[in-house]
Design a binder for these strands. Sequence first.
DNA 1: AATACCCGCAACCGCCTCCAC
DNA 2: TGTGGAGGCGGTTGCGGGTAT
Length: 256
Amino acid sequence: MPRCCDKQGTNKGAWSRQEDKKLVHAGQGSWRSLPKATDLHRCGKSCRLRWINYLKPDIKRGNFMPDEEDLIIKLHALLGNRWSLIAGRLPGRTDNEVKNYWNTQIRKKLMKMGIDPDNHKLNQIAQLHFHNQPQQCISASMEKAFNPINGDADMVTDAGSCFEDDRMSAGSSHDLNLDLNVAFSFPSPTVVAGEQKKLENTEILESDEIPTLVIDQLDVGPRRRVTDDGTDSVAVGVEEMGHVREVPELEVLCGY
DNA sequence: AATACCCGCAACCGCCTCCAC
DNA sequence: TGTGGAGGCGGTTGCGGGTAT
């Protein structure tokens, strides 16, 4: 069965100005029927992508601000490669843009700093470097991350924090009012390790002993999970679209 | 000046989810 | 409940511009 883009006479590749004009004129709608209605020889998917990533009126173009970069790193630590979710927290940015920026800029930056961009942990070389010359190469926030509250010696850190001090000294004036630092000053909740999945039977755990934090409307924190067999446990997770997803990365960030 | 190489980004592709029927 | 179409998402590709040789 041919795909929609395989149709004969369907254009591919870069969009021309005329095509853009037609798409702008038509605007958002039913993507499959739009090409017919506007005499655009593009498949609906292509129209949608062009609109979302380039033609949509509220798209913010140009370089990413340091605050945005910091936020991307932190959200990536929490959510992984869920670009649409990450982009949703960055007004005017698209998932494609965020993804490209991560792959071309941030990934390199983190690797240069000795941080594995996939799991946000320091690699062995960086650990060694830190122990040899802590005052010269590690910022205060990073050092804090190296010394978890519980005194554990785990070599884990929140990569986003590594950029904070540099920017403070550079006098960043942009304040997104986002405190994404993850720090539990309470006894650690039991963390349910395992694969990331949607948890249907969960509820917010309201306990004085267990902290909850809200990250830019992203509700992150421990939940009571009631499984089918009646047992309940605590999972650290992120609520999204009515579901709670476990985030093992939080264990890392919190130094579990 | 010509060529090779690198890099960023727009666009494509395939898979998944949702929803109407 | 199953099925098919449409939209959405993340990974990947390839083009074009910039830089090095």
